[in-house]
Simulated scan of single mutants.
Amino acid sequence: MSRDDSTMGGRRHELLEDVHAQVKSVLQEFGIDAAVADQAGAALADHLAQNWGGQNFTFPMDHHYYVTMRDQEIYAEFDGRNHHVLARKFNMTVRGIYKVIKRIRAKGDPDQHALF
């Protein structure tokens, strides 16, 4: 086995261990018994290995997913006059709120339905 194969094997193992530990931790935070949480974590890690093993994919490192959720929430709360309120609530600048609204409208207002 080459050194690269050994390193990649370690990384795969590290990923599955991390999934296991994270699931266990989150479930315990929700009040699930530690033994049950540990079993659920192991089951999810096993599921990923069995069903996704051998696949190559990349997890994005940016926070695009969370920004999108935040932007949708901002747009849902936007009433046309509450830029300052939203800026305070979401720890942004007023200009940033304007940009979010503009970006969502450019993609097409999700509340507007096509006529034809």
Rank of each mutant, 00 (worst) to 15 (best):
M1N: 09
S2G: 15
S2P: 11
R3L: 10
D4V: 08
D5N: 13
D5E: 15
M8K: 06
G10Q: 07
G10V: 06
R11N: 07
R11W: 08
R12W: 02
R12L: 10
R12S: 03
H13Q: 10
H13L: 10
E14N: 01
L15Y: 04
E17F: 05
V19D: 10
V19M: 12
H20G: 03
A21K: 12
A21F: 09
Q22S: 08
V23M: 06
V23A: 05
S25Q: 11
S25I: 05
V26P: 03
L27R: 07
L27V: 11
E29Q: 06
F30M: 06
F30C: 02
G31E: 02
I32D: 01
A35C: 00
D38N: 13
Q39V: 10
Q39K: 04
A40V: 10
G41L: 05
A42F: 07
A42P: 05
A45K: 00
A45D: 08
D46K: 14
H47C: 12
A49Y: 00
A49R: 01
A49Q: 07
A49M: 02
A49W: 01
A49D: 10
Q50G: 08
W52V: 06
G54F: 14
G54H: 13
N56C: 08
P60S: 10
H63T: 08
H64I: 03
V67G: 00
V67R: 09
V67Y: 11
V67A: 00
T68N: 15
T68C: 14
M69E: 13
R70E: 14
Q72E: 12
E77Q: 15
E77D: 15
F78I: 08
F78S: 06
F78V: 08
D79G: 07
G80P: 12
R81W: 09
N82A: 09
H83Q: 13
H83E: 14
L86N: 01
L86P: 03
A87C: 04
K89S: 11
F90S: 05
F90C: 01
F90V: 05
M92V: 05
T93R: 08
T93L: 06
T93S: 15
I97R: 02
I97K: 00
Y98G: 02
K99M: 12
I101V: 15
I101C: 04
R103I: 04
I104E: 06
I104L: 12
A106I: 07
A106L: 01
K107A: 15
K107P: 03
G108T: 04
D109I: 02
P110M: 11
P110R: 12
P110L: 10
D111A: 07
D111C: 04
A114N: 06
A114I: 08
L115N: 04
L115C: 00
F116P: 06
